[in-house]
C-alpha cells in the first residue's frame, strides 16, 4: 500500500510541477467554454439549453487530449519498466496512475464548474447534479483513456489515434452523463435511473481498464 501511495503523490506532483500545473487544465476549459458563446451566439436561453452538454464535452475532450501523458513521460525516462516490474501488481500500479491522472485533470474542472456554469447560464439547481455526475463519469473516462494510452504507449504523437480509438467508448458515458444531469436538474420522473447506469458504466470501465492496460503495456514492451 505504501509504495502505491508514494506513486500516487509522485504522479500528482509531477503533473502540477511541470508545464503550468493545474492552470493548464483550467486554461483549457476556460478557452473552450468562452469560445462556445461566440460560436452559437450569446442568447441566454440557448446557452442554458446547451450548457450541460458543452461542459460534458469539454470534460471529455480534456481527458482525451491529455491521455498520452499518463504513460509517455514514464516510458521516456525508463521508470515505467521499473514501476511495472518492482513490487506491486502492474494492475494496481496502473489503477493508481489512473487515479492520479483523474486528480490532475478532472478534479480542477469540478472545482471551477460553478464559474463555468455561470458563464454558460446553467439552469438553476443544475450545479450539484452536474458536479456529482461529472465526478462519477470522469472516473470512467479516465479509465478508458488509460486503455488508449497503454495501447499507443510506444507511438510518438499518438493523440489523434487515441481520439479515434477511444471516442467510440466515450459515447455511453456522454449519453448517460448528460441525461443523468438533466434528469436530476429538472427532477424528471425516476431521476436516478440514468445516474445508476452512469455509475455502472464507470465502475465497469474502472474494472476493465487496469487489466486491459497491463496486457497492452506487456505487449508493447
Amino acid at each position: 500500500m505504501k509504495p502505491l501511495l508514494a506513486l500516487f503523490k509522485r504522479d500528482i506532483s509531477l503533473f502540477f510541477r511541470s508545464g503550468g500545473g493545474a492552470g493548464q487544465a483550467i486554461g483549457f476549459y476556460l478557452v473552450v467554454v468562452i469560445l462556445f458563446p461566440f460560436g452559437v451566439g450569446p442568447e441566454l436561453n440557448l446557452l442554458a439549453r446547451i450548457s450541460i452538454g458543452v461542459l460534458w464535452v469539454v470534460l471529455l475532450l480534456a481527458i482525451l487530449l491529455s491521455a498520452e501523458r499518463i504513460f509517455a513521460d514514464d516510458l521516456e525516462d525508463g521508470s515505467l519498466t521499473l514501476l511495472l516490474t518492482a513490487g506491486p501488481l502492474p494492475e494496481m500500479v496502473i489503477l493508481v496512475k489512473l487515479l492520479a491522472h483523474w486528480v490532475s485533470i478532472a478534479l480542477p474542472l469540478l472545482v471551477i464548474t460553478p464559474l463555468l456554469g455561470l458563464l454558460l447560464n446553467l439552469p438553476a439547481g443544475g450545479l450539484w447534479p452536474l458536479v456529482l455526475c461529472m465526478f462519477i463519469g470522469s472516473l470512467g473516462l479516465c479509465a478508458l483513456a488509460t486503455i488508449g494510452a497503454s495501447i499507443l504507449v510506444s507511438i510518438r504523437r499518438a493523440n489523434q489515434i487515441i481520439s479515434l480509438l477511444i471516442l467510440p467508448l466515450y459515447i455511453p458515458t456522454l449519453i448517460f452523463g448528460v441525461s443523468a444531469t438533466t434528469d436530476l436538474t429538472f427532477q424528471l420522473d425516476q431521476p436516478y435511473t440514468a445516474l445508476l447506469i452512469l455509475t455502472a458504466i464507470s465502475l465497469i470501465s474502472l474494472i476493465i481498464a487496469p487489466f486491459a492496460a497491463a496486457q497492452a503495456l506487456k505487449a508493447n514492451a
Binding site: 467510440p168 458504466i201 476493465i208
Partner: peptide, 18 residues
C-alpha cells in the same frame, strides 16, 4: 487483440446507450 476485445465488450453497451 486488446483493441478488438475492448471494442467487443463495448459494442452492446454502445448499442444500448445509443
Amino acid at each position: 487483440t486488446i483493441v478488438a476485445a475492448v471494442g467487443l465488450i463495448n459494442i452492446p453497451i454502445i448499442k444500448f446507450s445509443v
